[in-house]
């Protein structure tokens, strides 16, 4: 089980949170101008990263804020959590070829 560091409430157990998928996906400025391929790419296409991954979490049973977490998808190591709009923390050197 993960201990996730909510930027407001501090370290809490994973059961208080809800997962929100890949972070930093910007909604297109003008969706009506996109063709189906580009719209589908925005809606459905996500990275399947092996290694450090920026993802969104919601502290759903606590302060109900969305924030970002950098988590290693293999080891579950959490590098850090940061608020929406903040810069991500520096990543450690990838180990064992995982990138």
């Amino acid at each position: 089980m993960l201990n996730i560091d909510c930027p407001w409430c501090g370290k809490r157990h994973e059961t208080e949170f809800r997962y929100g998928g890949e972070a930093h996906i910007a909604r297109p400025e003008d969706p009506a101008m996109l063709d189906d391929t580009d719209w589908a790419a925005f809606l459905f296409m996500r990275k399947n990263t092996k290694g450090y991954f920026a993802e969104r979490w919601l502290h759903s049973h606590g302060c109900r804020r969305w924030f970002n977490v950098i988590r290693h998808t293999v080891t579950h190591e959490i590098v850090g959590a940061y608020k929406m709009g903040e810069k991500p923390p520096k990543l450690p050197k990838p180990a064992g070829g995982a990138k």
């Binding site: 409430c9 809490r12 059961t15 208080e16 049973h61 606590g62 302060c63």
Partner: peptide, 8 residues
């Protein structure tokens, strides 16, 4: 005070 889960 804390908002958390008590018995789920």
């Amino acid at each position: 005070c804390v908002q958390t889960l008590i018995a789920k």
